[in-house]
Design a protein around this nucleic acid. Structure first.
Lengths: 132, 132
DNA sequence: GTGAACCATCCAGCTACGGGAAGGTCAAGC
DNA sequence: GCTTGACCTTCCCGTAGCTGGATGGTTCAC
């Protein structure tokens, strides 16, 4: 099948699929006219990538996961370790964002938000001493 | 003061400070020897940038905030609007990460994680139909 | 046969810097 | 006066993961 159909079935833009080929993640055959020809297996890999990426795995991690997927001798513990590591990363990122949100909310609440120029938000941004 | 001292006082790497000059955020004068010479006001702007960036504002948003900071006719409502919009973004990002985390946890918990190859995590990644 | 919809390659750009090379400057110590 | 080391300068490349656009070939329906 052509790239357009593969895009539709994997829910990935054609541009992205070509990029994945460039970095050797999915390598379809070529038809006589030069068009990429995707097998069902290729589409499977594309879906795998779409799903993994949407769960926050980097391209390199997706590569590792695909390699585990291809390896019938894999230990499920190896896959689980990758997932657990990612959970940790996601949790750290959430914590970081929550800290930011907390400060932003405090600042926003302290600002009367009218036509006057005085603003505690700007005061904070300008005045915070990073070494304090 | 030289860039090293400015870096220390703003808690920003010298590389970043040069970059900020390149994109016209902070433009120090030059000493006779060609070295950048930062005034206290420059350092103030650098700190402002450091703080804003750490709260999640993009460079363009920082530029807008600095412009409000410079404008004595500003309305604090404009600053507050920027902050509220950012809070919304941060909240959306947190929600997205929490959704990812939820799925990852479910997958990790479903995987026995031993030496055997069968793995519900890979099954999910491979089998999820993005159009379903 | 012709126009739209598809496909191809290649090049450039995005964010927000960081690394590293090649070389100029300055202050301390001998 | 000379060296040494810590600074400073510019310049160019690389990162992640694509996306947009230019230019041109292919296919299919009408």
């Amino acid at each position: 099948m052509n790239i357009g159909a593969a895009a539709e079935r994997s829910n990935l833009p054609a541009k992205t699929i070509r990029y994945y080929e460039e970095i050797a993640l999915v390598t379809p055959t070529r038809a006589a006219n030069g068009y990429r020809d995707y097998s069902d297996k290729d589409v499977h890999r594309l879906r795998f990538l779409q799903r993994s990426r949407s769960l926050g795995f980097t391209i390199d991690e997706c590569r590792a996961l695909l390699s585990l997927y291809d390896n019938e001798q894999r230990a499920s513990a190896d896959v689980k370790a990758v997932a657990l590591e990612k959970i940790g990363e996601v949790e750290r990122k959430i914590a970081e964002l929550q800290a930011m949100k907390k400060v932003l909310k405090r600042l926003a609440e302290s600002c009367h938000g009218d036509a006057r120029p005085d603003c505690p938000i700007l005061d904070d941004l300008a005045g915070a001493d990073p070494l304090a």
